[in-house]
Amino acid sequence: MTDKKNLGRVSLFLATLIWGVSFVLMDLTLNSVPALYILAIRFLGAAVILLAVGARELKKIDRGYIRGGVVMGVILLAAYCFQTFGLPLTTPGKNAFLTSVYCVMVPFLYWFIIKKRPDKYNVIAGVVCLAGIGFISLDNHFAIGLGDGLTLICGFLYAVHMVICGAVVEERSPILVSMLQFAVAGVLAAIMALIFQPAPTHIPVSTVWVLVFLTVMSTALCLSLQIFGQKHTPTAQASVIMTFEAVFGAATSVLFYGETLTLRLVIGFLLTFAAVLISETKLGFFRKKATAASAKETITTESETVELNQTGGNNP
């Protein structure tokens, strides 16, 4: 069991690392392949891979699977479109951090849908997140750039996708649901690509390998790693690990993309990261530490009292 827990944590870290690197790879790929063609290749390729993995479970597919797969596929494609079209208009690091705000948005969406009020940690996270977005995106005229704006819409759609995913996946195979949503997103992306964008005439070999990486590693493998990792890792720990996707994205952008880190951008990144941590963990780690310290102090005090009683202590 301990080995599975450790492997679960490693799986989540690996998934976040691959996703973080993918922000820069996507930006580079857009130089030679139109966005919709990239999405079509990624989603259809991932659907085929998951079809091979979950072939034995195909008999489980019913109307519920199909309905959920269609809804999730449409929303997933919309989110990726906003993210991918926003990426060339901003930087991979900003794109990564602004995308991560979906974690903060989810509780407020639940409030809107099922009337469940966000707790105080969600509210605090929302305020901190807004401050982080301001430092990252607002210019001297307090306006948000087009690329950052598109990325924020992407973050909202990811939050919607997560809420719907929670309802669809319940008592259903995650592999089958993912396969169906990838298939729907891939087919729609291919149709839109043929209608709205010119087909790429020359794709460099290096770009082909990047597309293979994005399809196999960033889409199909990372999903499997996430599912396995979350199954064998406590929710609070899994949430903390998943927030590092934005950190890896920003680090890769600085190291390999040449993004310049200004003080204002660093503050924005730190605030956004803190907001996600607050929303996902509710500062459980610090509260547990405080509880443990209080318990230790109580035990020490009781031990001293017993010792004083045994030796006469300060009795007159």
Results as ranks from 00 to 15, higher is better:
residue 2 T to H: 14
residue 3 D to F: 11
residue 3 D to K: 09
residue 11 S to R: 07
residue 13 F to R: 00
residue 16 T to Y: 10
residue 16 T to Q: 12
residue 28 L to E: 02
residue 31 N to C: 07
residue 33 V to S: 03
residue 38 I to F: 05
residue 39 L to R: 04
residue 46 A to G: 03
residue 46 A to T: 01
residue 50 L to D: 10
residue 51 L to Y: 02
residue 54 G to K: 07
residue 54 G to D: 05
residue 56 R to I: 02
residue 56 R to E: 04
residue 59 K to S: 14
residue 61 I to E: 08
residue 62 D to W: 06
residue 64 G to M: 00
residue 67 R to W: 15
residue 67 R to N: 14
residue 68 G to S: 11
residue 72 M to W: 12
residue 72 M to S: 14
residue 79 A to N: 00
residue 82 F to W: 06
residue 89 L to Q: 10
residue 90 T to G: 10
residue 90 T to A: 13
residue 91 T to P: 07
residue 96 A to M: 04
residue 98 L to P: 00
residue 101 V to K: 03
residue 106 V to M: 07
residue 106 V to Q: 07
residue 107 P to L: 02
residue 110 Y to S: 10
residue 114 I to M: 15
residue 117 R to G: 11
residue 118 P to C: 08
residue 118 P to F: 06
residue 119 D to V: 14
residue 121 Y to V: 01
residue 121 Y to P: 01
residue 123 V to W: 04
residue 125 A to V: 02
residue 129 C to Q: 07
residue 133 I to P: 01
residue 134 G to H: 03
residue 146 L to C: 12
residue 147 G to T: 05
residue 149 G to Q: 06
residue 151 T to F: 07
residue 154 C to N: 13
residue 154 C to Q: 10
residue 155 G to L: 06
residue 156 F to Y: 14
residue 160 V to T: 15
residue 162 M to F: 11
residue 162 M to T: 13
residue 163 V to F: 15
residue 165 C to D: 03
residue 179 M to E: 09
residue 181 Q to A: 03
residue 181 Q to K: 02
residue 183 A to I: 04
residue 186 G to I: 01
residue 190 A to G: 09
residue 197 Q to D: 00
residue 198 P to A: 13
residue 202 H to C: 12
residue 202 H to K: 15
residue 204 P to V: 06
residue 206 S to V: 08
residue 207 T to Y: 14
residue 214 L to F: 02
residue 219 T to H: 05
residue 227 I to N: 12
residue 229 G to L: 02
residue 231 K to D: 08
residue 232 H to K: 10
residue 233 T to G: 06
residue 235 T to Q: 14
residue 236 A to D: 06
residue 236 A to Y: 05
residue 237 Q to E: 14
residue 239 S to M: 04
residue 242 M to I: 08
residue 245 E to F: 01
residue 245 E to D: 03
residue 247 V to P: 04
residue 248 F to L: 09
residue 250 A to C: 07
residue 253 S to C: 09
residue 255 L to I: 09
residue 258 G to Q: 10
residue 258 G to K: 13
residue 271 L to I: 05
residue 272 T to D: 09
residue 276 V to H: 05
residue 277 L to T: 09
residue 278 I to C: 15
residue 279 S to V: 01
residue 282 K to E: 15
residue 282 K to S: 14
residue 285 F to T: 11
residue 286 F to S: 14
residue 289 K to E: 12
residue 290 A to L: 13
residue 291 T to H: 07
residue 298 T to H: 15
residue 300 T to Q: 15
residue 301 T to S: 15
residue 302 E to D: 11
residue 308 L to D: 11
residue 309 N to D: 00
residue 313 G to F: 01
